[in-house]
Simulated assay, not measured.
Amino acid sequence: MIQVAILPCNPKKAAFHHLLSSLIKGLKQLESAGMRIVGSDSADFTVKAHLLIASGDIVGVADLCNHSGH
Rank of each mutant, 00 (worst) to 15 (best):
Lys25Arg: 09
Pro11Met: 09
Ala15Arg: 13
Gly26Trp: 03
Asn10Glu: 09
Gly34Val: 02
Lys48Pro: 02
Leu51Arg: 07
Ile24Lys: 10
Leu7Ser: 02
Leu52Thr: 13
Gly56Met: 00
Leu30Asp: 01
Pro11Arg: 08
His67Asn: 14
Lys28Ile: 06
Lys48Val: 05
Thr46Ser: 05
His67Lys: 14
Phe45Trp: 08
Leu7His: 01
Thr46Ala: 11
Val4His: 07
His67Gln: 11
Ser32Trp: 06
Lys12Phe: 12
Ser21Gln: 10
Arg36Asp: 15
His17Met: 13
Ser21Leu: 09
Pro11Ser: 10
Phe45Gly: 01
Gly60Met: 04
Gly56Arg: 00
Leu64Cys: 07
Met1Asp: 14
Glu31Tyr: 06
Phe45Pro: 00
Phe16Thr: 03
Val47Cys: 15
Thr46His: 06
Lys28Val: 10
Leu7Gln: 03
Ala43His: 07
Val47Leu: 15
Ile6Thr: 13
Ala54Asp: 07
Met35Cys: 10
Asn66Gly: 08
Gly39Leu: 03
Leu51Ser: 11
Gly34Tyr: 01
Leu20Cys: 01
Ala15Ser: 07
His18Asn: 11
Val61Tyr: 09
Cys65Lys: 14
Ser42Ala: 10
Asp44Arg: 08
Ser40Gln: 13
Leu27Ala: 12
His67Glu: 10
Gln3Val: 14
Lys25His: 12
Asp41Cys: 10
